[in-house]
């Protein structure tokens, strides 16, 4: 059966849009709607759209690492964000913020790092699960 051209062209425009929107959701979290989990889900669905429009093996080539390693790295980043406050002799996972806001990122601190870890973890786990489903063909 001949493949339709609509889906690859739509993916070429939609996938960068979804990735940018996921970063936007990630950075806006904590005080407003958004956060690492939602951003990670949107990014993972962008990657799944790529896998559907080309093939699951193309997504394997696109990923820099195995999805399991990506999930593990995200978990380690989240864990590390809890240890930062211990260097300043405060309890584990105390929130610490920088004094002046950065230009684009806004006011960042250890919760931002935690959210980044959750983002990477969710991307890794969701892509891992969906690739396991897609492999049996």
């Amino acid at each position: 059966m001949q493949r339709s051209i609509i889906l690859p062209v739509a993916t070429r425009f939609l996938m960068p849009l979804m990735l940018v929107f996921s970063i936007f959701l990630l950075l806006r979290g904590h005080n407003e709607v958004g956060g690492g989990f939602v951003g990670g889900l949107v990014a993972a669905s962008a990657l799944m759209l790529y896998a559907i429009s080309t093939s699951p093996s193309a997504l394997w080539r696109l990923l820099p690492l195995d999805p399991r390693f990506i999930a593990a790295i995200g978990l380690l980043i989240s864990l590390f964000s809890g240890f930062i406050s211990m260097f300043y002799e405060k309890p584990f996972m105390t929130n610490m913020w920088i004094e002046a806001p950065l230009p684009v990122l806004g006011k960042i601190g250890t919760p931002t790092l935690f959210d980044l870890g959750v983002y990477i973890l969710v991307v890794g786990v969701v892509v891992w699960i969906l690739l396991e489903f897609a492999e049996d063909e």
Binding site: L14, L17, S45, M48, I52, S53
Partner: peptide, 9 residues
């Protein structure tokens, strides 16, 4: 965005 993906899937 996601609805499009669901219909495609």
């Amino acid at each position: 965005i996601i609805t499009f993906l669901g219909t495609v899937a």
